[in-house]
Computed example of a mutant assay.
Amino acid sequence: MLSTHRAFYDAVETGDVDLMSSLWVDDVHTSCVHPGAEPLRGTDAVLRSWTLLMANVGYIQFFLTDVEVNTMPPGAEEPDTAVVTCTENILSGEGVESVDAFSGGKAVCTSILVRDRSSGPWKFWSRHASPVIDIDPEAPEEP
């Protein structure tokens, strides 16, 4: 399932709509919550959002940390559900003035991946990402 999880980020980084489409369960109950946005429901809406995002982002790269996987049923030899949490450390060329400049951000993400009982490929069922706000403890307080 981690190869499917990594393929998701590869799809975003390269703008590969076909790869992104292959990674999601085709169902009206799939869901995705982008940072700061309302939930999207259904594979068509989810894929449309990723297609728009990928078409409008020039350079983006994800460095994943704190990756943790829990499978269900717990201890099963052939689990059919996995919950993957991670921190996305994001490097982007969006919103910067210079061609040689980059900006960064951080989000925490929870993804639920499923597969059918016949050991089919892992696919995304749900994904939720929330921004992490870095607060500088040395910064002066605003009035």
Rank of each mutant, 00 (worst) to 15 (best):
S126E: 11
T43C: 00
E138A: 14
A107S: 13
D10E: 13
A139K: 12
D16Y: 04
M72L: 14
P140V: 15
E142D: 15
V132T: 11
S92F: 08
Q61R: 08
V28T: 09
F8A: 03
M54C: 04
S3A: 12
G36K: 11
D18K: 12
R117I: 02
D26I: 15
V84K: 05
S118C: 02
S22P: 06
H5F: 15
G105Q: 08
A76M: 09
A129V: 11
V46H: 01
P73C: 07
L47A: 03
S22C: 11
I60N: 09
S31E: 07
V46Q: 02
E141D: 14
R41E: 07
A82Y: 00
I60F: 09
P143C: 09
G36I: 11
E38F: 03
P140C: 13
P121Y: 01
W24C: 12
V67P: 04
D18R: 12
S22L: 09
V69N: 01
P79N: 07
P35F: 06
S49N: 04
V114M: 00
W50L: 07
R117V: 05
C32S: 06
S130Y: 13
Y59F: 15
W125N: 02
S130D: 15
G95Y: 03
K123Y: 05
R117C: 01
E138V: 11
S103M: 13
F102C: 09
T4P: 00
S98I: 05
V25E: 06
T43A: 02
T87G: 06
N56M: 07
L53Y: 14
W122T: 00
Y59S: 06
T81Q: 02
T43R: 02
A107Y: 05
W24S: 09
C109H: 01
I60W: 05
T81V: 10
D80G: 11
V108Y: 15
S3G: 07
T14C: 01
D27I: 12
C109Y: 01
V57I: 12
L91K: 09
V132C: 15
T65G: 11
G104Q: 10
I135Q: 10
V57K: 11
A82K: 01
L64P: 04
H128I: 11
G120T: 02
S98M: 07
T85K: 06
G95Q: 07
P131Y: 11
V12R: 06
G104I: 08
S3R: 12
T14R: 05
G75F: 10
L91Y: 02
I60L: 13
L53H: 08
H34P: 04
M20P: 04
R115L: 00
F62Y: 11
S21H: 12
S126R: 13
G105L: 08
D134C: 10
G75A: 11
T51F: 07
E142W: 15
L2N: 12
A107T: 14
P137I: 13
S49A: 13
G15E: 06
S31A: 10
P143A: 13
K106M: 05
C32F: 04
P73K: 07
T51Y: 08
P121K: 01
H128Q: 15
P121G: 05
T81F: 00
T51S: 14
R117S: 07
T14D: 02
Y9C: 05
F124W: 01
S118M: 05
S130L: 10
F63A: 04
L19M: 07
I133P: 14
D100P: 03
D116W: 01
T51I: 09
L40S: 01
A107L: 08
R127W: 05
I112A: 00
T87A: 07
